[in-house]
């Protein structure tokens, strides 16, 4: 399984960024919705769309896909 994103579908809401349990443990401020201060997180919203940074850290728990309202991030 691989983590995939579709930037054309992305709303830029960032719910995946704050829901991702790995992101929160890497950069606790993302849980508060303040945006990550590091590119060590798995994904971030950049210029209004989602972008993957450290996707190798993904444990494939599926939380981002459960929360994404528009099928812009998923496991395949």
């Amino acid at each position: 399984m691989e983590l995939k994103v579709n930037q054309d579908n992305c709303l830029g809401c960032g719910v995946c960024v704050v829901a991702c349990p790995v992101n929160v443990s890497i950069s606790p401020e993302v849980a508060g919705g303040h945006g990550s201060k590091t590119e060590e997180t798995i994904m971030m919203v950049e210029n209004g769309v989602i972008k993957l940074f450290s996707e190798d850290k993904c444990t494939k728990c599926g939380t981002c896909q459960v929360f994404c309202p528009v099928d812009a991030i998923w496991l395949e």
Partner: peptide, 14 residues
């Protein structure tokens, strides 16, 4: 063991 979280929660055919 495959990524069980993703498989179970997304209903993937895997």
């Amino acid at each position: 063991l495959e990524p069980i979280g993703g498989i179970v929660r997304t209903g993937a055919k895997k």
